[in-house]
Simulated scan of single mutants.
Amino acid sequence: MSKYEMLVGLEIIDDVVYSEYRAAMKPILTAMGGEFGYDFRVSEVLKSEVEDKINRVFTIRFPNKNIMSAFFDDPEYQAIKAQYFSPSVGSFTIIRGYEIN
Rank of each mutant, 00 (worst) to 15 (best):
S19Y: 07
Y77N: 05
N66G: 09
V57T: 03
F85E: 00
S48C: 09
T59H: 07
S48D: 06
D39T: 11
M68Y: 14
N64V: 03
E44I: 05
K47N: 12
D74V: 05
K47P: 01
E51K: 04
N64G: 04
K3D: 02
Y98W: 04
V16A: 15
R22P: 00
V42A: 11
I13R: 14
G34M: 06
K47A: 13
G90N: 02
G90W: 03
D14Q: 10
F92N: 07
L29K: 05
F58G: 00
I60Y: 10
I94A: 00
N101S: 12
Y38K: 12
R61V: 03
S69R: 15
G34P: 06
K3M: 15
R41Y: 11
T93G: 00
I13N: 10
S2G: 01
I100M: 12
S43N: 13
K47S: 14
A70S: 14
F85C: 02
E35N: 14
V89C: 00
I13C: 13
V45Q: 04
E49W: 11
D52F: 07
S2K: 11
R41F: 13
P75A: 05
I80C: 01
S86R: 13
I95Q: 06
L46H: 11
E11D: 15
P27T: 06
V89N: 04
Q78N: 00
A23S: 13
Q78M: 08
V45I: 14
V8Q: 10
F62N: 02
D73K: 02
V57E: 01
